[in-house]
Simulated scan of single mutants.
Amino acid sequence: MQEVKIIVTPIDFSDNAKMIADSAAYVAGKFGAELHLVFVVQDFEDYTGFFVPPVNLPNLTKELLESAQQRMEEFTESCRETATAAGVATLRSKVLNGDVAEEILSYTEEIGGNMIIMGTHGYKGLERIMFGSVADKVVKTACCPVLTINPYRQNCGVQN
């Protein structure tokens, strides 16, 4: 197995995102690895057959990217203390645009990522039906180990 030096962690700004990022920071600290937090703005142009897109779709995408970048900067700062305490020397963040699973995999390959740590749950309801399970796609097609965290099954089997 290749040495783990760069860990990629997709986040979705959900209520569980901080817990996933903190868990990834813990693992990154144990490996002495860099931690890259990524958020992908879904590319809705692929779904124009399902709905009539607004006339100004490029403007909407630009606004979503700008908003996501601002949220990512705030989120990364909120994770910095935990990451530092866990021993993570390098914490980076990136906002991408496109198919969520494909962008996660492409970015991981581009930076030479050795591991992906991600939550098992993100989209719910209709969004999950439209977009499918991102974690499932990543696990099935990644060229590196993928550690998934089910945020709803914390402390399984742990007795207090």
Results as ranks from 00 to 15, higher is better:
residue 83 A to N: 04
residue 137 K to N: 11
residue 92 R to I: 07
residue 142 A to M: 06
residue 67 S to T: 11
residue 157 G to N: 08
residue 96 L to R: 01
residue 51 F to A: 11
residue 74 E to K: 15
residue 113 G to F: 09
residue 73 E to C: 10
residue 107 Y to S: 06
residue 45 E to N: 12
residue 42 Q to R: 11
residue 34 E to S: 03
residue 142 A to G: 02
residue 131 F to I: 09
residue 44 F to G: 02
residue 9 T to Y: 05
residue 93 S to E: 11
residue 129 I to M: 15
residue 110 E to H: 10
residue 121 H to M: 10
residue 158 V to P: 04
residue 109 E to H: 13
residue 80 R to H: 12
residue 112 G to E: 12
residue 39 F to K: 04
residue 105 L to C: 04
residue 147 L to D: 03
residue 19 M to K: 15
residue 159 Q to E: 14
residue 19 M to R: 12
residue 107 Y to R: 06
residue 137 K to E: 13
residue 110 E to R: 14
residue 108 T to Y: 04
residue 157 G to D: 12
residue 158 V to C: 09
residue 72 M to R: 08
residue 23 S to N: 12
residue 33 A to H: 05
residue 43 D to Q: 04
residue 1 M to P: 03
residue 85 A to P: 05
residue 13 F to Y: 08
residue 102 E to R: 12
residue 58 P to C: 06
residue 57 L to C: 06
residue 149 I to R: 03
residue 32 G to L: 04
residue 85 A to V: 04
residue 95 V to G: 03
residue 113 G to A: 09
residue 32 G to S: 02
residue 113 G to T: 05
residue 72 M to G: 00
residue 29 G to V: 03
residue 141 T to D: 15
residue 38 V to Q: 02
residue 142 A to Q: 09
residue 43 D to F: 03
residue 130 M to Y: 11
residue 114 N to R: 04
residue 127 E to Y: 09
residue 158 V to Q: 13
residue 122 G to A: 03
residue 23 S to Q: 15
residue 20 I to K: 08
residue 100 V to R: 01
residue 84 T to F: 12
residue 159 Q to P: 08
residue 133 S to P: 03
residue 136 D to G: 09
residue 92 R to L: 14
residue 123 Y to T: 01
residue 75 F to C: 01
residue 135 A to H: 00
residue 103 E to S: 14
residue 115 M to Q: 09
residue 148 T to G: 03
residue 45 E to P: 07
residue 145 P to R: 02
residue 18 K to V: 04
residue 153 R to G: 07
residue 87 G to W: 07
residue 55 V to F: 15
residue 144 C to M: 10
residue 143 C to N: 11
residue 12 D to I: 06
residue 136 D to Y: 09
residue 91 L to M: 06
residue 30 K to E: 13
residue 87 G to S: 05
residue 39 F to V: 04
residue 19 M to Q: 13
residue 5 K to R: 15
residue 83 A to C: 11
residue 113 G to M: 09
residue 16 N to P: 02
residue 28 A to P: 01
residue 58 P to R: 08
